[in-house]
Simulated scan of single mutants.
Amino acid sequence: MPGKLFEVRWHGRAGQGAKSASQMLAEAALDMGKYIQAFPEYGAERTGAPMKAFNRISDEPILLHSSVEKPDLVVVIDDTLLGNPDIVAGTDENTIMIVNTVRDSNWVRQKSGFKGKICVVKATDIALEELGRGTPNTVMLGAIARVTGVIELKYVEEKIRDMFLKKFGEEVVQKNIRALHRGYEEVRCDA
């Protein structure tokens, strides 16, 4: 990825943590010395409504200021969105898709028509086991670190600590770090 602009488009529903995860991804990359952008795009601003978030990460200043049209990575936090043509818009066989699902990559490909590399992780299940609630965003960040190498886990761990320690305490920090590591370990990719 050196010098190259790496673009991420997140698809989820409002309230699932896509905006927070895109912010944490950006801040972790910033701490690694990268240039970053992170911004959400909402339709109807209500819990459960489909929404998108975007990231750009680069070794050089980022001069683009628009939504991500041709993502290198598509992150799908809610697999019920897979039939939506927005998910695959601007993608090709070089694009990677990471999906939070209990299903396999063949099901994702059939449902979405996606042509690139598909990775799946049971992020909601892991979040329920580790955090006691179905918020899959830290699990997805672990999967992103494993699949793309665009961020390193230690930087995400620092962001988790920064975000949660004062507000929720060490126990919540540790639960999120375990969820992050499980996303890293348990993501599975085709081909």
Rank of each mutant, 00 (worst) to 15 (best):
L63R: 14
N55D: 08
L82M: 10
L63M: 13
H65R: 15
E27M: 13
H65V: 00
P71K: 05
L25V: 07
P71G: 02
E60P: 01
L64M: 11
T80W: 01
L73R: 06
K52S: 14
A89V: 03
L25F: 12
R46T: 11
K34G: 00
N55P: 01
S22K: 00
P61H: 11
Q37L: 07
Y42M: 11
L82K: 09
K70I: 00
M51G: 04
G48R: 01
Q23V: 09
V88H: 07
I62K: 11
L25A: 09
A53Q: 02
A49K: 08
A53V: 03
M51D: 04
P85D: 14
T80C: 01
I57F: 05
L64Q: 14
Y42I: 11
A49M: 07
E60M: 04
E45T: 10
V88P: 01
D79P: 03
A49R: 08
P40R: 04
E27V: 04
Q37M: 13
E60I: 03
S66L: 03
G33N: 07
F54R: 02
P85T: 08
D31A: 12
Q23G: 04
A49G: 07
P61C: 08
F54I: 05
A49S: 15
A28R: 02
T47G: 09
Y35H: 15
P61L: 02
I36Q: 12
Y35W: 14
F39R: 02
L64A: 14
E41S: 15
A38H: 08
G33H: 05
G43Q: 12
P40Q: 08
